[in-house]
Design a protein around this nucleic acid. Structure first.
Length: 431
RNA sequence: GGAGGGAUGGGUGAGCGGUUGAAACCGGCGGUCUUGAAAACCGCUGUGGGGGAAACUCCACCGGGGGUUCGAAUCCCCCUCCCUCCGCCA
């Protein structure tokens, strides 16, 4: 959420930011609502001041055993007026807050202005896509053939956009999670947390998923529980309504969780394989930082995520998202895109963003300098480090061999009991 | 699921329906004292929203939302969370 005073004083700038994001206006009524709200506020508060004053007079009269009936009668009238004015002011206030809650963050000056993904800019590349002397297969062919991935039974027990991992496939998923967590904890200094996979709506509001994107989420019927779409939600909200000391910053958490997304509106897109699922696992990095260091911290966080791809030997590139492709709450986002031989293109595997104070204002995340003075909103950042399902498939595809087996990169072998290769059985296992 | 007890400022913790935005203590800041520091003493020390060029001033906020009242941190109702006990349970 943007600061009300800021929007009021920089309306044109905010409008331009919306246009840069490719959004049709959303602020047409801002000035009028703001003006009406203040009008009723001033009227109500003036009457309240009078009421407070007279209430004291009544108290004094009563203390002196004098009659106060005429004043009380007057206040009864005034009370009704106040109630009416309050209701009107409250109505405009709600409209204003609703408006504000639906305005996305302002992109950082370094973000390229563009209409969508086609305007994202490549920042750097790492690794060389491997040259195959055979036709590389897609993971949705490799996986079932190796007996490590089962889509049919997943459809039976749950539906479309689910997968069952089997045998080494299941273990590989688990190994990747452990590997990623270990790297971030040991080498990058993050504190591991394991949060609830269900959160309340206040948490989703804090990160900016609500009120606007309820349709992307799964909600438990008849409750205020929602399945988390990413660990960002519970972990960012961990420190909600708290005041930190400046010296504690940055606070760095990493978390492995399952993630759940309704994927409404993505019908027909990436329906094959495990690229886009209702449920997947992810290791997430979350940082709480000082405002003045948040962009340095974004660079560092992005590098932290890149480390995983490098240690696994997976070629990738880093792109900075254009204004038209950025998420609602983000001020700047780098995507990590891993090379997929089956499609011959780079595919998103991590998204690293600086939200500046956008989430901090919504979630009331503050800090204080030197234990004194005014509290300020801190900055929040997060990034996938990495999406495990997509790492799994990138690994299978990039390390596939002509005979259908898959080599395991060195760094991962300790997590798989030293396994060097996933071998294709003569026949796919029945059960 | 049932019964009871709680939720107050950065922290601990008082608070008869009417100078309580809120005692006291701790912490923090400033000062006195001191060569310096500590101790002691004195003062200051919440957030948000309006009005005002400013000085300043007004309003709201005691878990959240309603209500009673001229007036609510204090009374009533609903909800959330925490604690204790019972039941159930991975």
């Amino acid at each position: 959420m943007l600061d009300l005073g800021f929007v009021r004083e920089n309306l044109e700038l905010v409008r331009q930011a919306l246009r840069n994001r490719g959004l049709a206006e959303g602020l047409e009524d801002f000035e009028e609502i703001d003006r009406e709200r203040r009008k009723f506020l001033v009227e109500a508060e003036g009457r309240k001041a009078r009421r407070n004053k007279v209430s004291d007079e009544i108290a004094n009269l009563k203390k002196q055993k004098q009659d106060a009936t005429s004043l009380i009668a007057e206040m009864k009238e005034l009370g009704k007026e106040i109630q009416e004015l309050d209701e009107k002011a409250k109505g405009f206030d709600a409209q204003l807050r609703d408006l504000l809650a639906n305005i996305p963050n302002i992109p950082h000056a370094s973000v390229p202005v563009g209409r969508g993904a086609q305007d994202n800019q490549e920042v750097r590349r790492w690794g060389e896509p491997r040259k195959f002397d055979f036709e590389p297969k897609a993971h949705w062919d490799l996986g079932p053939a190796l007996g490590i991935l089962d889509f049919d039974r997943a459809a039976k027990i749950a539906g479309a956009r689910f997968a069952v991992y089997r045998g080494v496939g299941a273990k590989l998923e688990r190994a990747l999670a452990n590997f990623m967590l270990d790297v971030h904890v040991r080498e990058h200094g993050y504190t591991e947390v394991l949060p609830p996979f269900l959160v309340n709506s206040a948490s989703l509001y804090g990160t900016g998923n609500l009120p606007k994107f309820a349709g992307d989420l799964f909600k438990l019927e008849g409750t205020d529980y929602w399945l988390i779409p990413t660990a960002e939600v519970p972990v960012t909200n961990l420190l909600r309504d708290e005041v930190l000391e400046a010296e504690e910053l940055p606070v760095k958490y990493c978390a492995w969780t399952a993630c759940f997304r309704s994927e409404a509106g993505s019908y027909g897109k990436e329906t094959r394989g495990i690229i886009r699922q209702h449920q997947f696992q992810k290791v997430e990095l979350v940082k709480f930082t000082l405002p003045e260091t948040s962009y340095d911290e974004l660079e560092a966080l992005t590098r932290d995520a890149e480390t995983i791809l490098q240690q696994l030997g997976l070629p990738y590139r880093v792109v900075v998202l254009s204004t038209g492709d950025m998420g609602f709450a983000s001020a700047k986002t780098y995507d990590l895109e891993v090379w997929l031989p089956s499609s011959g293109e780079y595919k998103e595997i991590s998204s690293c963003s600086n939200f500046e104070a956008f989430q901090a204002r919504r979630a009331n995340l503050r800090f204080r300098r030197g234990g004194k003075g005014k509290t300020e909103h801190l900055h929040t950042l997060n990034g996938s480090g990495l999406a495990i399902g997509r790492t799994w498939l990138a690994l299978i595809e990039n390390y596939q061999q002509a005979d259908g087996s898959v080599l395991i990169p060195e760094a991962l072998r300790p997590y798989l009991d030293g396994l060097e290769r996933i071998v294709r059985p003569p026949e796919a296992p029945k059960r």
